[in-house]
Design a protein around this nucleic acid. Structure first.
Length: 950
RNA sequence: GCCGUUGUGGUGGAAUUGGUAGACACGCCAGGCUUAGAACCUGGUGGGGCGACCCGUGGGGGUUCGAGUCCCUCCAACGGCACCA
C-alpha cells in the first residue's frame, strides 16, 4: 500500500465546493495576481530588478479600440503570446509583455460621427470596455505600461519622431540618415551640390555643372534644403476622396476606385501633401529582411511591395522634334528587338509629340481613356488600347525610325512612364503589336531543347510572330543583335544584358539603373482624429519645426469635428483642424507670424514606434531611455511579435522604416525592430443567409439532414469572418461565463496550430471542458474535497508516459504548438483516471506544464497541494531535469522494418548489449528462425532494426 | 501570369523531424445514470477479411533495411501581388 497524504482544503478557500467551480476559482486567482502585482515588469534601474536574467520581449499587435467589442477571434493571438510570456517567466526570463491601444484614425472618427459623441469620449469608453474583456481572458499583461496613441503624453513623442525625420536627410554616400545641420555643413564645404532636388557629391559627373550652394539666394537655399528632408512637402498625385473630405492611401481605395469606407468615388489629382522619403531606404528594407526570423510569405510580400529591379535607363532621340524619350528597361539585351515606343497617356511630353494629323485620333483615345479610368482601376482581362502619336524615335543602335505610341498599359507611376516595346519578347508588347499590326523582331533564341520540344526550327521561330509570345524565354541566348562595335549573338541573356549595358554606357546612350515600385509615403490626412503636425508655416513658404519644449501640439478641442465633405472634385481639401480657434491656428514667435499646419498624421503613425514606448512608457525626458532601450531590445529587438498577416506590408514596412531612421540617428540600438514575427490565423465562422440574402442569427439555425433551417425555412451557409453584421459573432464573455476562462484559453489553442485559420465550433468546446473536469476529479476527491496526490512517485508505465509527455510538451511549447502540447497533457491525464491517487511527480509536472495555458486551475490545485511558492514563480527547467532522471529506456525492435517487440534496456547500455538483447527476444527470434542476419541498425534511444535475408 | 503556402479518417488535427500512421478531441455507435431530456460517466470507432494477415497519408516514379516526412514529376486547394517594362 502506498502511503497517502491527504490535505484538507486550505482555510482560505473555505466555502469552496469540492466540484470544479471554475468561476469562483478563476475570480480568486485573478484577484490574487492583481493584488500581488504578479505581472509587474521591472526595468533596469528599478529597485529589485535582476539584471542577471535574460530578457524576453513578447508583443501583440495592439488593437484598435472598436465600439463593437471583442469576439472570440480577437483573443487568439493574445492567448498565444500570454502563454509564451508565462512560459518564459517560468524559464527564468525577465519578460516584457505589454498591451495598449491604437486609437487614432478614420474608423474611430467615423464611429464618433455616427454616435454623435466626441471621439475622445468614445475612444475612452471603448478602451475601458476592451480592457475589461481582455482582463477576463486571464492575460498576464503589465497594465501599468498601458498606452494609447491618442494620449498627448504619447503623441508628443510621435510628433518628436516626426521632427527627427523633418530634421534629417538621406546621405547618398553614407547610405544613411544624417541631420540637416550636417547637410548644411557639407553644402557650405562644397562636398555636395544641390539643384532641383538633386544631391550630387564631388565624385559624380554632374557635380561641376551644378551651382555652388553659396551662390543661391537664401530662399533658394532653404527650398533646396527642404527638398532633401526625410519629411517633405510635395505636389504629388494622390487619391482624393471629396466624399470623405480627405486624401487616402492606395490601400484605402478599392479596385473600383472608391473609398473602402463609405464607398465614395476617389479621384487622382496632384495636391501639396506631406511625404516621408521611405524610398531612400528601399535597399536596406530588402537586405535587412535577412536579419529577421519572419514567415517567408511576409518577407516575400515586402520584397514584392518594394519591387526592386535591375536594368538600364536609356534615351531615344525624337525624329525631327527636339528632345528625347527616356525609358527604363530590365531587358537592355533586347534593344535590337525594339520596334516601337509606348508612352503613358499621362506622359508630360505628349503635347510636343502629337502631330496635327494624329491629334483628332489622340483626343478621341484620351477621352475613352479618362472615362475608362474613372470606372475601374482593375486592369485584369482588359484589352490593351492605344493610338499612334504621329511621332518617331530614332533607334540609338540601328538609327531606324520607330513609331511612338500612346498605350494605356504603360503606367506613369513606374520607371519613366515610357518604354521601348519589344513585342517579340514581352507578352504585353506582343498583344499590343498584334492588335495594331506593328512589326516584330526576334532577338532572343530559346534553348535547343525548347525548340525541339515545340517542333520549331530556328528559321520559322524567328519568322513567325504568332509563336513569339508563347516562346518568350528568359534563359535563351541573343540573336540578330549585331551592330557596329557590338555583337551579342549567341550570348546567354544574363551575359547579353551586362554587355549591352557596358556598351550603352561607353557610348553615352544609357546607364545601368535600379528601379523600385515603392513610392514615398503620403503622410497627411485632412481628418480631425489624428496627431497634429508639429510644424509652423511662415511667410514665403518658410517651414519651422515647433520647439521641442513646446511639444505636444495638442489637438484643439472642436465642437464640430466632422470633415468637410465636398461635392466638387476640383475643390481643394479642407483640413478639419481649419475649424479650430484662431488662437490655436496662429502662433507668433520672435515677432514672426506663423500658421499652424492643419493636416493630421495617418493612422499608421502611432503604431510605428509603440513597441519602443512600452519599454519606458512614463518617461518625461525622452521617448525611451537609452539604457532601458538597450536592455529590452538586446540583440534582436522584440523577441516575438504576433499579429495578423494583414499588416504584412504597411504597418510592418512603415515601422521598420522609422526604426531605421532612428537607428541612423543613434536613437535606437538595433537595425531591425522585430526579430521574430509570427502570424496568427483567423477564427472563421459559418454565417447563414435566407433567400433574400439577409443574415439570420447563426445560433438559431438548425442542421437537418443536408439542409440548414431557420424558422422552418431553408438557409444558405457560408464560411467567413466572424462579425456582428453577419450575425455569427460570439463574445468571449459568453464562453467564459459558461465554461470558464481556462477552458476558453485551452480551446482556442486546441482548435489547431496558432498560425492557421480555423472554424469556431462551439459544440467541440465540451471536450476541453471535460478534460479540466477530469483533471480536477483526478486531483480532488469529489466527496470530501481532499487532495488526491500521493507522496509516492510514479513507476512503470506511468513513469514512461510522464517522461514522454515532458519531452514532447517541452518541445511543443518552444515551438508554440499548443494544440499538440494540450493533446499530450490530456493523454497523460487520461492515464490517471484509473489511479486512486496521482503520483506526486506527475502531479507537479502536470501542473507546471499546463499552467501557462490554463493558469487558474493549476494555481488552485498547486495551492491545495500545499506548495510553498506560488506556481507562476516556479522555475520549470529545474523541475524538468529532476523528473527526467531515468535509468531505463524502452526501444522498439524491428525485423526488416516491421515492429516485432518492445524491449527495456538500461539507459547506459552499450550498443552490442542492446543488439544482443534485441536478437534474443522471444517474439524476435520467431522471425529470425532460418534467416541470416545481414545487419543490425541501432537508432539510439529509439529502435533496433534487424535486417535479414532468406 | 508571377511569388508564397498546403494536401493525412465523417471533422479539427497528431506522428519523438526518416523509425509502431491516425495520438488527442469533436461527431457517431453501444451501455450507465435519469420518470424523461440536458448535463455527466464508461467502452467502441481508417478500410477489407471469420482469421493469421492484407491495403491505406492527392496521383505516378525514385532514394532507403525502413518514406506522411527526402528527391523528381503531375494534380488540386488556399493566400498575396498583378499591364512594374
Amino acid at each position: 500500500m502506498p502511503s497517502v497524504a491527504s490535505f484538507s482544503a486550505l482555510s482560505y478557500i473555505g466555502a469552496m465546493k469540492a466540484s470544479y467551480d471554475f468561476l469562483a476559482i478563476e475570480k480568486k486567482w485573478r484577484e490574487y495576481w492583481n493584488q500581488h502585482r504578479c505581472f509587474k515588469t521591472l526595468n533596469p534601474g528599478d529597485p529589485g530588478f535582476d539584471a542577471s536574467k535574460p530578457k524576453y520581449y513578447v508583443l501583440d499587435m495592439f488593437p484598435y479600440p472598436s465600439g463593437k467589442g471583442l469576439h472570440v477571434g480577437h483573443p487568439l493571438g493574445y492567448i498565444a503570446t500570454d502563454i509564451v510570456a508565462r512560459y518564459k517567466r517560468m524559464l527564468g526570463f525577465n519578460v516584457l509583455h505589454p498591451m495598449g491601444f491604437d486609437a487614432f484614425g478614420l474608423p474611430a472618427e467615423q464611429y464618433a460621427i455616427e454616435t454623435g459623441t466626441h471621439p475622445e469620449v468614445t475612444t475612452q469608453k471603448n478602451i475601458e470596455n476592451m480592457i475589461s474583456q481582455l482582463k477576463a481572458c486571464g492575460l498576464s499583461y503589465d497594465w501599468d505600461r498601458m498606452i494609447s496613441t491618442t494620449e498627448p503624453e504619447y503623441y508628443r513623442w510621435t510628433q518628436w519622431i516626426f521632427l527627427q525625420l523633418f530634421e534629417s536627410y538621406f546621405d547618398p554616400k553614407k547610405q544613411k540618415a544624417l541631420s540637416i545641420s550636417q547637410l548644411r555643413k557639407f553644402l557650405r564645404n562644397d562636398e555636395y551640390r544641390v539643384s532641383d532636388g538633386q544631391l550630387c557629391s564631388d565624385r559624380e559627373a554632374a557635380f561641376s555643372e551644378l551651382p555652388l550652394f553659396s551662390s543661391l539666394r537664401l530662399e533658394q537655399q532653404e527650398e533646396e534644403i527642404n527638398r532633401q528632408r526625410l519629411a517633405y512637402i510635395d505636389a504629388v498625385n494622390v487619391n482624393w476622396c471629396p466624399g470623405l473630405g480627405t486624401v487616402l492611401a492606395n490601400e484605402e481605395v478599392t479596385v473600383d476606385g472608391r473609398s473602402e469606407r463609405g464607398n465614395f468615388p476617389v479621384f487622382q489629382r496632384p495636391l501639396q501633401q506631406w511625404m516621408l522619403r521611405i524610398t531612400t531606404y528601399a535597399d536596406r528594407l530588402i537586405k535587412d529582411l535577412d536579419l529577421v526570423e519572419w514567415p517567408e510569405a511576409v518577407k516575400q510580400m515586402q520584397k514584392n511591395w518594394i519591387g526592386r529591379s535591375e536594368g538600364a535607363s536609356l534615351s531615344f532621340p525624337l525624329y525631327e522634334i527636339k528632345g528625347e524619350l527616356e525609358v527604363y528597361t530590365t531587358r537592355p539585351d533586347t534593344l535590337y528587338g525594339a520596334t516601337f515606343m509606348a508612352v503613358s497617356p499621362e506622359h508630360p511630353m505628349l503635347s510636343t509629340m502629337v502631330t496635327s494629323e494624329q491629334k483628332p485620333h489622340v483626343d478621341a483615345f484620351m477621352k475613352r481613356y479618362q472615362k475608362q479610368k474613372a470606372v475601374s482601376k482593375d486592369p485584369t482581362n482588359k484589352e490593351k488600347e492605344g493610338v499612334w502619336t504621329g511621332a518617331y524615335c530614332i533607334h540609338p543602335l540601328t538609327q531606324k525610325k520607330i513609331p511612338v505610341w500612346i498605350s494605356d498599359y504603360v503606367l506613369m507611376g513606374y520607371g519613366t512612364g515610357a518604354i521601348m516595346a519589344v513585342p517579340a519578347h514581352d507578352q504585353r508588347d506582343f498583344e499590343f503589336a498584334k492588335k495594331y499590326n506593328i512589326p516584330m523582331q526576334t532577338v532572343v533564341m530559346p534553348p535547343q531543347e525548347w525548340l525541339a520540344q515545340h517542333r520549331i526550327d530556328k528559321e520559322s521561330y524567328v519568322a513567325s510572330p504568332e509563336t513569339l509570345s508563347e516562346a518568350f524565354v528568359e534563359y535563351g541566348h541573343a540573336c540578330h543583335s549585331q551592330g557596329s562595335g557590338i555583337d551579342l549573338d549567341g550570348q546567354p541573356t544574363n551575359e547579353a544584358k551586362k554587355n549591352m549595358i557596358a556598351y550603352l554606357e561607353a557610348q553615352g546612350l544609357g546607364i545601368s539603373k535600379v528601379s523600385y515600385k515603392l513610392r514615398d509615403w503620403l503622410f497627411s490626412r485632412q481628418r480631425y482624429w489624428g496627431e497634429p503636425f508639429p510644424i509652423l508655416h511662415g511667410a514665403h513658404g518658410k517651414l519651422r519645426a515647433v520647439d521641442e519644449a513646446d511639444l505636444p501640439v495638442t489637438l484643439p478641442p472642436l465642437k464640430d469635428f466632422r470633415p468637410q465633405v465636398l461635392e466638387d472634385q476640383n475643390q481643394d481639401p479642407v483640413p478639419s483642424l481649419g475649424k479650430a480657434e484662431e488662437s490655436w491656428k496662429r502662433v507668433e514667435i520672435e515677432d514672426q507670424r506663423y500658421q499652424r499646419e492643419l493636416n493630421t498624421m495617418p493612422q499608421w503613425a502611432g503604431s510605428c514606434w509603440y513597441y519602443l514606448r512600452f519599454m519606458d512608457p512614463h518617461n518625461q525626458e525622452s521617448f525611451v531611455s537609452s539604457e532601458i532601450e538597450k536592455y529590452w531590445m538586446g540583440e534582436n529587438g522584440v523577441d516575438l511579435y504576433v499579429g495578423g498577416v494583414e499588416h504584412a506590408v504597411l504597418h510592418l514596412l512603415y515601422a521598420r522604416f522609422w526604426h531605421k531612421v532612428l537607428y541612423d540617428l543613434g536613437k535606437v540600438s538595433t537595425k531591425e525592430p522585430f526579430g521574430k514575427l509570427f502570424n496568427q490565423g483567423y477564427i472563421q465562422a459559418y454565417s447563414y443567409q435566407d433567400e433574400r440574402g439577409m443574415y439570420v442569427p447563426a445560433d438559431e439555425v438548425e442542421h437537418q439532414a443536408a439542409e440548414f433551417m431557420f424558422e422552418g425555412k431553408s438557409v444558405q451557409r457560408q464560411l467567413g469572418k466572424m462579425g456582428k453584421s453577419l450575425k455569427n459573432s460570439i463574445a468571449p464573455d459568453e464562453v467564459i461565463e459558461k465554461y470558464g476562462c481556462d477552458t476558453f484559453r485551452l480551446y482556442e489553442m486546441y482548435l489547431g496550430p496558432v498560425e492557421q485559420s480555423k472554424v469556431w465550433d462551439t459544440e467541440a468546446i465540451v471536450g476541453i471542458h471535460r478534460f479540466l473536469g477530469r483533471l480536477w476529479r483526478n486531483f480532488v476527491d469529489s466527496e470530501s474535497g481532499d487532495i488526491l496526490v500521493s507522496v509516492e512517485e510514479s513507476t512503470g508505465k506511468l513513469k514512461t508516459a510522464l517522461h514522454h509527455t515532458i519531452k514532447t510538451v517541452t518541445e511543443y511549447m518552444d515551438q508554440m504548438r499548443y494544440n499538440a502540447a494540450i493533446a499530450q497533457l490530456i493523454s497523460l491525464n487520461n492515464l490517471l483516471v484509473e489511479q486512486s491517487h496521482v503520483p506526486s511527480d506527475i502531479a507537479r509536472a502536470m501542473l507546471l506544464m499546463l499552467s501557462p495555458m490554463a493558469p487558474h486551475i493549476c494555481e488552485e490545485l498547486w495551492a491545495r497541494m500545499g506548495q510553498a511558492k506560488s506556481l507562476h514563480d516556479e522555475a520549470w527547467p529545474k523541475a524538468r531535469e529532476e523528473f527526467l532522471k531515468s535509468d531505463v529506456m524502452e526501444l522498439v525492435v524491428q525485423v526488416n522494418g516491421k515492429r516485432r517487440a518492445n524491449i527495456e534496456v538500461a539507459a547506459d547500455a552499450k550498443k552490442e548489449e542492446i543488439e544482443k538483447l534485441a536478437c534474443e527476444h522471444e517474439a524476435v527470434k520467431k522471425h529470425l528462425a532460418d534467416k541470416n542476419i545481414a545487419k543490425v541498425i541501432y537508432v539510439p534511444g529509439r529502435l533496433v532494426n534487424i535486417v535479414v535475408k532468406g
